[in-house]
Write a protein that binds this DNA or RNA. Structure first.
Length: 433
RNA sequence: UGGGGUGUAGGUCAAUUGGCAGACCACCCGGCUGUUAACCGGGAUGUUGCAGGUUCGAGUCCUGCCGCCCCAGCCA
């Protein structure tokens, strides 16, 4: 027996009709001669009520064989029910098992350890909390695309297989025919700079690979990064853009993903407090503040996680830390004309201790200075020939930044660990599923 | 890689001083016409991470190894 096929989300408007929904068994409960089945179809969940006296005996019997996560089709009458989540429930008259699920489905509606859940990540993703995280992630991605599209940025895709170029940290390598080793890209930035000279303002959105032996709640070996690159933007223009982007993302998630944030039990007051302008603090001032607060960090050293937490603690919005010492940053950052010990850069730290979500800088646009810096870092100048060409043929003031997608998701969702913010996280010790 | 913690049933955990390895959930049987991680009664559940050592006796103590978690470094 079937009715009009419906998605669960559309049920309230189908009240009074006979429908069939297809989905997976999320929960079964029986109470004597009444039984309850909760079905999830990806658009929502609905409770289906089976009353023994009102359905054929074989249907009642079939209900008894339902197991967690079996794929089913349920037919019944839709009725509005104010107490039901979604506002409707189904008075079931038939259920068909489309795909059986043995009784050993590993994930029960109880607490589990993280390692066990990660081993079963392919199934864990069906849990409401994980679904909510993926939906917020999707909303953030779409907000980013819309943000740049509205501003006439061109989205460009940069190579994942590269020769050794970029930053110093760990690279994944693989054999590449007769060309020696290829490396998985750890940034698209240098290519982004070439594209910015062609199209003015561009952004990349893709996976990034870092073979660092990091075991923290903020690191993945494979993560997604958004890297805008803007011709004729100085570092301040770039910070302005970053602020607008983060505000747009935050507002979009608050506007459209309240139900998901509720599932995640996110305290949205923290997100509602995000308004511009974000404080811009120079590295030098930050060091002074840190020393007042008792930190042992001295000028010239990079800021540690503890230092970042101390600085962020005073604010409810993200903050920028600007103009780090040259030694603490990458070779391509432009020397600060007002203080040549430092470079024109800015890291954006998220509130609530979520740490660095953006790293950005104005790029060195002087050919000889850049070449000198490449040599200073002990890098192979020949490998950077094409990159230097960008300064040879029509060099231009330009800036860009990298926004870590998973870190942004973790911050907005309030998750304790970044690993839940991507469907299949890749960590040092996690390559499967 | 360094510091701290942890490993017991399919899952989450308990086990006193070294003295019969247990509870709950899930699973199976039975009961209940409105349940929300339902409830009530009954049943079944083990290479205590691995290897060795001390001991009459080790989940417990010792040595080594392994896995995982947290923190730090690297960064987004």
């Amino acid at each position: 027996m079937t009715g009009q096929m419906q998605y669960i989300v559309a049920l309230p408007s189908a009240a009074g009709t006979t429908v069939t929904v297809r989905g997976w068994v999320q929960h079964v409960r029986t109470q004597g001669k009444v039984a309850f089945l909760v079905v999830r179809d990806g658009t929502g969940t609905v409770q289906c009520v089976f009353v023994k006296s009102q359905i054929p005996p074989e249907v009642w019997e079939r209900f008894g064989t339902l197991t967690l996560e079996a794929a089913v089709a349920v037919t019944g009458d839709v009725r509005l029910e104010p107490r039901a989540p979604g506002g409707a429930e189904i008075g079931a008259i038939d259920v068909t098992i489309l795909g059986a699920s043995p009784i050993d489905y590993p994930i029960q509606p109880k607490e589990h350890g993280v390692d066990f859940l990660m081993d079963n990540r392919h199934l864990w993703l069906r849990a409401p909390r994980q679904v909510a995280l993926m939906r917020v992630r999707h909303e953030i991605e779409q907000a980013i695309h819309d943000f740049f599209y509205e501003r006439d940025f061109t989205r460009c895709d940069t190579p994942i297989l590269t020769a050794a170029i970029g930053e110093r940290s760990g690279l994944f390598s693989t054999e590449y025919f007769d060309e020696g080793n290829a490396y998985l890209a750890q940034t698209g930035q240098l290519y982004g700079e070439a594209l910015a000279a062609a199209m003015g303002r561009i952004y990349t959105f893709g996976p990034t690979f870092r073979a660092e032996k990091s075991k923290t709640r903020r690191h993945l070996t494979e993560f997604w990064m958004i890297e805008p690159e803007m011709a004729f933007y100085d570092v301040n223009d770039s910070m302005q853009l970053q602020e607008e982007l983060l505000l747009a993302i935050t507002h979009r998630v608050l506007e459209r993903r309240r139900p998901e944030l509720a599932v995640l039990e996110r305290d949205v007051s923290h997100l509602e407090a995000i308004v511009g302008p974000f404080p811009r603090i120079s590295y030098t001032d930050a060091i002074a503040t840190l020393q007042q607060k008792g930190s042992a960090t001295i000028w010239g050293e990079d800021l540690g996680a503890e230092d970042e937490a101390l600085l962020v603690a005073d604010y409810r919005t993200p903050i920028f830390i600007c103009n780090y010492p040259k030694e603490a940053k990458a070779f391509y950052m432009k020397e600060n004309p007002d203080d040549p010990r430092t470079v024109l850069c800015a890291d954006c730290l998220a509130p609530e201790g979520y740490g660095e979500i953006i790293g950005g800088s104005q790029r060195e646009d002087d050919h000889d200075k850049l070449r000198h810096r490449i040599q200073e870092e002990g890098l192979d100048v020949d490998a950077y020939g094409w990159y230097l060409d960008l300064r040879k043929y029509g060099t231009f003031v330009h800036s860009g930044f990298g926004l870590g997608l998973e870190r942004t998701v973790a911050w907005l969702c309030g998750t304790p660990h970044i690993r839940e913010c991507i469907p299949f996280p890749r960590l040092m010790n996690r390559l499967r599923p």
